[in-house]
Simulated assay, not measured.
Amino acid sequence: MSEENDSLEQFLDEIKKEWFDILDYWAESTIDKHNGGFLGEIDNSGVVNSKIAKGVVLNTRILWTFSSAYNYCKNERYLEIAKRAFDYILTYFFDHDNGGLFWAVDTAGQVVDDRKQAYAQGFGIYAFSEYYKASKDQRSLTHAINLFYLLESKYKDDEFGGYVEALSKDWKPLSDMRLSTKDANEPKSMNTHLHIIEPYTNLYKVWENIELKNSIKDLLAIFYNRILNQQTFQFQLFFDMDWTVKSNEISFGHNIESAWLLSDAARVIHDEKWIEKMETAAVHVTDKVIHDGMDLDGSVFYEKIDGVIDKDKHWWVQAESIIGLVDTYKITQNKKYLERAIQIWSFVKANIKDSKGGEWFWRVDKAGKPVVGDCKVGFWKCPYHNTRALIESYSRLKK
C-alpha cells in the first residue's frame, strides 16, 4: 500500500510541476511583443514564423488556459496574460457589426478568414466564461451569453437537432464548412458538438440559466442517441443533417475526451439520470480505447481509418487519455485505470515532453521520435489539452 501511495504522490507532484512549466513556456515564449497578442507559430526548434496568420482557436484557448490557471492558484501573472488574450480577441477577432468571432487574422490584426465556425463560437464561450470567473469583468460574461444565444439562434437545427458546422460572417450558408482540410465536408460533426457542450457546461458554472441547462440536456441526448455507437462504444465523427453517419474513422483521442467531458456535463447540471448514463458509457468507451487504441508501452495511437491504425502519438491524445482514465478511475475506483494514466504520463515524460526546449511536441512516431515539420505553437497547437489534463487529474486525485 505504501508503494502505491508513493507512486501516486510522485505522479501528483510531477503533473503539478509540469502544469506550471507549460504555463511558464507560454508566458515567456509566445508573447508577440511587436504586433500584440501572441505569436501565431513556433516550430520544434523554437523558430518563430512571423508571417503566419493568427487563429481564434489558439487565442481563445490561451485565454481559457491562463484564466483557469489564475482561478486555481490566484497568480496575478496569469491574470495579466489572460487579460492580454481577452483584449486581443475583442479587438481583432470579434465582429462588432454582426456579432460572433472570425476564424483568423493576419499578424497586423486584419481579418483574413471571416467565416464563423460554430466550433470557434464555442471556444469563445469557454474562454469568456472562464475569464469572467477570474476577472469578474461583466463584459466577459455578457460576451459568453451572447455567443450562447447566437449559437442557439443561428446554428441550431430545429428539425433534426444539433448544430451546423459553419456560416458566413453575416450568417449565410457555406459550401465548405470544414474545420480543417483533414475533415469531411459534412454539415454536422462530433467534434463541433463536443466543443459546444463543453463551453455550455463551463458557462453554466457561472450562469445557471434554464435555457442553457435544457440545451446541455439536448446535447447529452444527441451524443447518447445519435453520436455514440451503442454497439461498439465509439463516437461517430461526421453526419448529414438528419444524422446519417458519413464516416468510418475512429478517433481514439476524441473517444476518451468525449467520455469524461460528457460525464462532467451531466454532473455540473446535477442530472442524476444523465450522470448514470454518461458515466456508464464512459467506462465502456474507455475500455474500448484501451483495447483498440493503446500501444504496448501504454501510449495511445491517433486514429483508425478503414481498419488501418495511424500509429503516431499526438500530444493532445495522450493528454485527454490521462484525464479520461483518471475520471474513469474515480467512477469505478478500479486502480487499473489510474495505473494506465500513470503509464501514459511516463510515456509523455520520455517522448512527448521537450525537456530542453519546453512544452510538448505535437506528436511522435511509433519509434518515439518527434515528427519533422511539426510546430510547438500553432493554429491548433495550444496549451489547453495538456494544462487541462494535468490540473484536472491533479484536482480529482487530491479530493
Score class of each variant (00 low, 15 high):
residue 122 G to Y: 01
residue 276 E to N: 11
residue 353 K to M: 09
residue 87 D to S: 09
residue 83 K to G: 01
residue 95 D to K: 05
residue 264 D to Q: 15
residue 70 Y to I: 06
residue 193 H to F: 07
residue 345 W to A: 12
residue 243 W to D: 09
residue 215 S to T: 08
residue 328 T to A: 00
residue 152 E to L: 05
residue 350 A to F: 02
residue 21 D to T: 12
residue 199 P to N: 12
residue 256 I to E: 12
residue 318 Q to K: 11
residue 276 E to M: 11
residue 31 I to M: 05
residue 108 A to H: 07
residue 220 L to H: 03
residue 178 R to F: 06
residue 43 D to E: 09
residue 377 V to K: 05
residue 43 D to Y: 03
residue 128 F to T: 02
residue 49 N to K: 14
residue 339 E to N: 15
residue 80 E to I: 02
residue 136 K to V: 04
residue 93 F to E: 08
residue 311 K to S: 10
residue 274 W to H: 10
residue 279 E to D: 12
residue 385 H to Q: 11
residue 135 S to A: 14
residue 335 K to Y: 02
residue 26 W to Q: 05
residue 380 W to K: 11
residue 347 F to Y: 15
residue 56 V to H: 04
residue 250 I to G: 02
residue 119 Y to S: 01
residue 20 F to C: 06
residue 133 K to V: 00
residue 295 D to Q: 10
residue 260 W to Q: 14
residue 108 A to S: 15
residue 151 L to W: 02
residue 247 S to F: 03
residue 277 K to M: 03
residue 221 A to H: 09
residue 91 T to G: 01
residue 10 Q to M: 12
residue 241 M to C: 09
residue 180 S to T: 14
residue 357 G to L: 13
residue 163 Y to I: 03
residue 358 G to N: 03
residue 256 I to K: 10
residue 267 R to G: 10
residue 231 Q to T: 09
residue 348 V to L: 04
residue 111 V to C: 11
residue 255 N to M: 07
residue 147 L to C: 14
residue 14 E to M: 02
residue 162 G to T: 08
residue 333 Q to R: 15
residue 108 A to W: 02
residue 294 M to K: 11
residue 307 G to E: 04
residue 244 T to C: 06
residue 171 W to N: 01
residue 108 A to F: 05
residue 5 N to F: 03
residue 14 E to C: 06
residue 175 S to D: 13
residue 187 P to S: 13
residue 301 F to C: 00
residue 226 R to F: 01
residue 255 N to Y: 01
residue 179 L to Y: 14
residue 176 D to R: 10
residue 259 A to S: 15
residue 234 Q to F: 06
residue 250 I to M: 06
residue 135 S to G: 00
residue 196 I to G: 02
residue 91 T to N: 04
residue 196 I to T: 07
residue 89 I to E: 01
residue 258 S to F: 05
residue 208 E to G: 05
residue 229 N to T: 04
residue 133 K to M: 06
residue 53 A to M: 12
residue 292 D to R: 13
residue 35 N to R: 01
residue 348 V to S: 13
residue 292 D to A: 07
residue 259 A to D: 07
residue 72 Y to M: 14
residue 262 L to K: 10
residue 343 Q to T: 12
residue 98 N to V: 03
residue 267 R to M: 13
residue 149 Y to D: 07
residue 239 F to M: 11
residue 233 F to I: 09
residue 231 Q to R: 11
residue 87 D to P: 04
residue 57 V to G: 04
residue 109 G to D: 06
residue 10 Q to L: 15
residue 361 F to Y: 13
residue 146 N to H: 12
residue 66 F to E: 01
residue 13 D to N: 14
residue 334 N to D: 15
residue 324 G to D: 10
residue 258 S to K: 09
residue 112 V to Q: 07
residue 135 S to N: 02
residue 246 K to L: 14
residue 236 Q to W: 00
residue 298 G to V: 10
residue 157 D to T: 09
residue 88 Y to N: 04
residue 258 S to A: 15
residue 328 T to E: 10
residue 356 K to D: 15
residue 28 E to M: 05
residue 309 I to K: 14
residue 21 D to Q: 13
residue 222 I to M: 07
residue 323 I to M: 10
residue 282 A to M: 14
residue 47 V to Q: 14
residue 236 Q to C: 05
residue 220 L to A: 08
residue 263 S to L: 08
residue 135 S to F: 10
residue 86 F to A: 07
residue 36 G to T: 14
residue 292 D to W: 01
residue 226 R to K: 09
residue 269 I to N: 10
